[in-house]
């Protein structure tokens, strides 16, 4: 998680711990849903890469 940018790590953490959906994350970040979805998916792949 330390390898991720703080905003990426925070979004992943909040999705998991607080159960936020893509729509809720998008609303919080004030960004389009599809943008947030793509961005978070990229963060997840980065996270997997770091944990290999």
């Amino acid at each position: 998680m330390e390898e991720l940018r703080p905003d990426q790590a925070a979004a992943v953490r909040r999705a998991y711990v607080e159960g936020l959906s893509y729509a809720e994350l998008a609303e919080e970040m004030n960004a389009p849903l599809n943008t947030v979805r793509t961005w978070l998916r990229r963060s997840l792949l980065k996270l997997r890469e770091c944990m290999e």
């Binding site: 893509y22 998916r41 997840l44 792949l45």
Partner: peptide, 19 residues
């Protein structure tokens, strides 16, 4: 690795995160 596609890797993560 292990032959899983990035799409499936993301799908597995999204399932675990509850997305």
């Amino acid at each position: 690795s292990h032959g899983i596609s990035p799409q499936d890797e993301v799908l597995a993560a999204e399932y675990v995160l509850g997305l």
